[in-house]
Write a protein that binds this DNA or RNA. Structure first.
Lengths: 142, 142
DNA sequence: CGGCATCCAGGACGATACTG
DNA sequence: CAGTATCGTCCTGGATGCCG
């Protein structure tokens, strides 16, 4: 891929495979991008992390995720259900009772999620320190 | 805002800690939420996954992440730099040369990211199948 | 209780133009 | 090459109200 011909955006498709790095195509074949977006979503992560412990009801989830609106919770749950990550069970009683649990597929995911959350918890001090250093340097330059 | 104060038989509001699940407070003390948002971000994941292989220049990143605008790439890189995940090196040459690499902190993160990406790749068939089943059932109900 | 429909504000994001 | 600046759009996501 000679880069002198920088004016041909369309032949991305042909092959840039001389890089040993992975490519992140946005094309349809690459559903990975789309799925990643879904599961690495702001709220999805929290829901999955919560359900890892046990089955929860709608309001329990809502109570345990501070700041989520019922709208976003509903949407998130629907998406996760559609993707086969969680299972929704409706009990035909009054008042209605619905609970959510991880599917087997969801369980395989939760371990990954968990390590992500753990990493964040264990390194938040470093990150906060890095931010302060960055902001300091930025202030210096100004 | 306690909502069920009128009829809360078990006074869950006073202390939610009788749940063995984790709490996701949005309060300041809980930076975890904010950090998770940052690293589990749509573009951040891709950038980190790419840099896991080797140091890359701005345009190399842009070329390998299909669909990202230079604006979002810049923003993403700045955030990751600020958080101490990646390091930005400027070479005082003309034309300018800047490259990006994972910091040691970033390297500890990349393993987690990698497992997330791997999970997605390995289970995308299942997910797509789950979606079709879901959509089928939904169509049925209508 | 567990939703869904509607409305609306704000921020994310893309496109474009300009700089060192 | 590697950005910054500005603008306009769109979509996320919060608030509210109704239903089974």
């Amino acid at each position: 891929m000679e880069e002198g011909t920088s004016n041909s955006p369309s032949d991305i498709c042909s092959t840039d495979r001389d890089y040993d790095v992975l490519q992140w195509d946005a094309r349809e074949e690459c559903e990975v991008r789309q799925i990643l977006d879904r599961i690495a979503d702001k709220w999805s992560l929290l829901v999955i992390a919560l359900l890892e412990k046990r089955t929860l009801r709608f309001t329990e989830l809502k109570r345990n995720i501070d700041g989520i609106s019922q709208r976003m919770l509903t949407t998130t749950l629907r998406h996760l259900e559609r993707d086969g990550i969680i299972e929704r069970t409706v009990y035909p009683v009054v008042p209605p009772k619905v609970d959510y649990a991880l599917t087997p597929l969801g369980c395989t995911l939760h371990e990954t999620i968990r390590s992500l959350v753990l990493w964040t918890e264990q390194n938040q001090a470093d990150i906060i320190a890095a931010r302060q250093r960055y902001d300091m340097r930025a202030a210096d330059g100004m």
